[in-house]
Computed example of a mutant assay.
Amino acid sequence: MKYLLLIYRSDAEYVKMNPAQRKALSGEYGAFTQSIIQSGHFKAGDGLQPVSTATTVRIRDGKTLTTDGPFAETREQLAGYYLIEAKDLDDALAIAARIPEAVRGCIEVRPVMIYDN
């Protein structure tokens, strides 16, 4: 079954990191990513630009409205994701717990919807 692992972190905390801390974090992500590629769990994944680059789109009364910024103001913002293949939720949770940001932010684990054709 496919699971989407959504990575949330505080952009403000990330900005406070010095270059050595950012490089170390990048190394942690590189090692984690390689481990799930090698184990066959990895399907896709990417980091996202800071929340300040987001634009939200809504359609109201037939009109397209755009707003600079994220959908909601929160302390933690969506920073990236991994799409994985896991045998079950427990397997997906174990993988999510290894994502480096789990110690500072949080990881939301959601099964991907399966459509019957």
Rank of each mutant, 00 (worst) to 15 (best):
F71E: 08
E73M: 08
G62N: 11
K43S: 07
A79G: 11
R60W: 14
A44V: 06
F71N: 08
D116P: 05
I95C: 00
V57W: 13
F42E: 00
A72F: 12
D61V: 09
Y82I: 00
E101D: 14
T33S: 08
M113R: 05
G105L: 01
F32M: 02
Y8S: 04
I99H: 01
V57R: 10
L93Y: 06
A86Q: 00
P70E: 06
R22W: 06
R98T: 07
E85A: 10
Y81M: 07
R75C: 06
N18R: 06
R104I: 09
I107R: 01
Y14T: 14
R60D: 09
K43T: 11
A72D: 07
T56F: 11
P50Q: 14
T33L: 02
T67H: 11
E85N: 12
N18V: 03
I36D: 00
Y29T: 03
N117G: 11
L25M: 15
T74F: 04
E13N: 09
T56G: 13
R75E: 09
I37M: 10
D90Q: 14
L65S: 09
A31F: 02
K2C: 01
T53R: 15
E76C: 03
I84K: 00
K63T: 13
D46H: 15
V15G: 05
R9Y: 04
C106G: 05
R110M: 07
R60E: 14
A24S: 11
R104Y: 10
P50T: 10
D61A: 15
R98E: 13
T67V: 14
D91M: 05
S26R: 12
G105K: 01
D116Q: 10
A79F: 00
